[in-house]
Amino acid sequence: MSLSLFPTSSLRAIMNWNMLKTTAYIHFLKAGGLSTVQDQGRFGFAEYGVPYSGAMDQFSLMQGNVLLRNQKEAAALEIGISGPSMVFEMPTRIVFTGALAEIFHNGKPIQLGQIVNIACDDEIKIGKFFRGQWLYMALEGGLETPIFMESRSWYPGISSQSRLKKGDSICYLSEEKYHSDHFSHPKLDGSWFKGKEIEVYKGPEWKDLTLEQQSLLMNSEFKISPVSNRMGIQLEGNVSNQLKEILTSPVYPGTVQLTPSGKLIVLMRDAQVTGGYPRVFQLSDQAINIISQKNFGEKVKFSII
């Protein structure tokens, strides 16, 4: 439907006044490699052992919600590894942020940051990922999946769903509103997660390392290992480690652990709340977002703030 055919402004005002939200569903024809619903996370339940969860890349989640003027608590679809395809029942608006990937709206390519007007039965299909690990699809008003412990973020054992499957449907509220077509949109090119540098604070057990280990940790480059998921990112390379395990202590997303075999693990959003390996670094908030988008085999270097 062409918006220029839309009637006079007086009629438009009536339509706004009469704004109705209708429950609608996104139907998934293909689930993709690792698609979940995520929001800012589940806070305040660590005393029961409950992880934060939430979007791996909180920066891109926020960008999507800002572009759609959503509340910051709005939930989005997080897409990893490979892309799903989906059909929308009713009109809404969506925007993609995060990883660079092929995205098609009814077969036509769309860009990151471009607000897309969705009509009834429109199809969105995600193809190849070019760079980055996590793509976010924010939707006007946010996804309306059930809330568990104050968050919509999916996590096994807490939310009723933990991973999107073929044939699943996700609820949203469709709102018939007048929208002009957006001709300009921010150029999101993923350059913000391109750099090697990962900003860190010294961890509680940093002081227990030898000078040699400290200089190795500060001056070496570490490769992102494929043994990585929403719980943690393992880094390749070896830091000989004679430190003994510590008594189980608090850990957070962004805590870098040094394992007995000399491997580094960067804990991510789904990480458990306590751990027993020495904690050598703590990533800054933005560094967690950056490292979440690093592809397997990419190199990173720690830089102490």
């Binding site: 806070f43 305040g44 660590a46 005393e47 509680p204 008594l247 189980t248 202590s249 608090p250 957070y252 709340v273 306590t274």
Partner: peptide, 12 residues
């Protein structure tokens, strides 16, 4: 204070 986490000999 938003949250307190506890380990055997630590509290954050």
């Amino acid at each position: 204070v938003l949250e307190i986490r506890i380990g055997f000999n630590s509290l954050s």
